[in-house]
Design a protein around this nucleic acid. Structure first.
Lengths: 121, 121
DNA sequence: TCAAATCCTTTCATTAATCAAGTAAAACAG
DNA sequence: CTGTTTTACTTGATTAATGAAAGGATTTGA
């Protein structure tokens, strides 16, 4: 399925996804066009799901980083899931943990006060 | 520090960091050149730390995703930290948790057997 | 062994990025 | 209030990257 060149491409794009196809090609010993075709294929196969940036959250005012263990009482998780959807501003990631009906919620906050407010909501 | 346009730019690049500066400019009502200058400034200020891709790990053979709570016995974390450095293939993220001398380790594995092997190392 | 498919390269037209110059508005010192 | 500097932007010209098309080499399979 994936050959060495594909793995190299994934590795290079993980490090810098805004590299030009020409440069990427040079790194993996292909022309820009060939590299571009490989990348398109990886996208088509759903292996590359998207392109994003890493943001320094503390520099934009979110200095508190928290990982919160969520234990849902009811087996219906919908109320919880719609709650975190509304709280998008604070939520970085919501991990569903296997076994127990439990989540790990990775969040960012401007202050501990706001974290406390969030926790008591 | 950050105005509305900067926040829009961060938002758009979070969704798709391979957008062209021209398109980004259109989204935030600037020319490509102006958008590019804004982005360069965000990079210079360390707000944008990097550009990356989201990879579907299960499609490249890592079907097991685990979050492992690490309790270090000794206060010297160096042995642990150098261990996870060697295990880069499996490690997605290592979170230092406040308070207790403890980490949360987010990992990927090809199988539960390999996870077990990792846990007993 | 022949046909089809895959993967690459080269070439060329189109499009985007970059660089330089110029403008308008805001910030600021005298 | 005024002249100066800085900032943020636009426009226009140049350079570079992208995308499409054509063709060649290698592999796959009937």
């Amino acid at each position: 399925m994936l050959d060495h060149t594909d793995r190299q491409i994934i590795n290079e794009l993980s490090k810098n996804s805004r590299i030009t196809m020409k440069e990427l090609g040079e790194k993996v010993h292909l022309t820009g066009q060939a590299a571009s075709a490989r990348v398109a294929k990886l996208e088509d196969h759903g292996i590359i799901e998207g392109y994003s940036i890493k943001v320094n959250q503390s520099k934009i005012g979110y200095s508190v980083h928290a990982i919160i263990h969520i234990y849902t009482k009811s087996t219906n998780h919908q109320p919880y899931l719609s709650f975190i959807k509304k709280q998008e501003e604070y939520v970085l990631h919501n991990y569903k943990i296997s076994g127990e009906s439990c989540y790990l919620l990775e969040c960012k906050f401007q202050s501990n006060d706001i974290l406390d407010e969030f926790l008591t909501t």
